[in-house]
Amino acid sequence: MNLIKAIFLSSVGRKYIMGLTGAAMSAFVFVHLLGNLQIFLGADALNKYAVLLHSNFAILWGYRLGLGTIALVHIVVALSLWLENRAARPVKYVVNKQPYTDFASKMMVCGGVAIFFFVIWHIVDLTCGLTRPDVVNQTTMLGDKQVADVYHIVIKGIGHPVAGICYLIATCCLALHLWHGLESIFQSLGLRNKTYALYIKIVTKAAVLFLFAGMCLIPLVCMLGILK
């Protein structure tokens, strides 16, 4: 039983869980972005990629369920930590400055909640197509097969001004979350020391900036009608 406690109930054990699940989701986000950036290679490239992703039912659903579970664990553990952290200081400082604590780390919970709601909407809207069936049900011919026209789904779906702005806001939240979170993974998993600290900082911050730029670019080009 102590093993369960050591991993799921202790402060450090849960930091490992946060770090590992965070790392998995970060990896997904980067792959997702790289996949989506194929939009700049033209309709066929993106549509072909979409077909590839949907080609194996077992892998697809295994992947979806796995990612969903990881997200759920990340959220549940985060909430438990958050509640404990609040309880650890029952009387707040009158001058509540939280010194030397950067904005991103203070926004982890808020940003996380925002991302959670965005992801729900994103799945409902574009993956399930429940809100805008006309956008999602577009198809096209790839060779001699009829496939979902993901290229135009994206352009039309994200190009809509309200949706596009939502995407931009969500991207800001995600980037802020990762601005602290990505570097934090190394600390939480014990993979940081004085020598590596600076390199880890530079690499993770650069990765977040790349992600931010890439994720902003797609809604912007769609909204501005650069891609049609």
């Binding site: 402060s11 600390q187 600290a197």
Partner: peptide, 24 residues
């Protein structure tokens, strides 16, 4: 006590400048 969220405020106020890399 609360849980560490890697803000490193601790090492910034530490009068003996103990590094947060010891937390890692």
């Amino acid at each position: 006590f609360g849980n560490c969220t890697n803000t490193y405020a601790c090492e910034s106020v530490c009068p003996k400048r103990v590094s947060a890399s010891f937390i890692a």
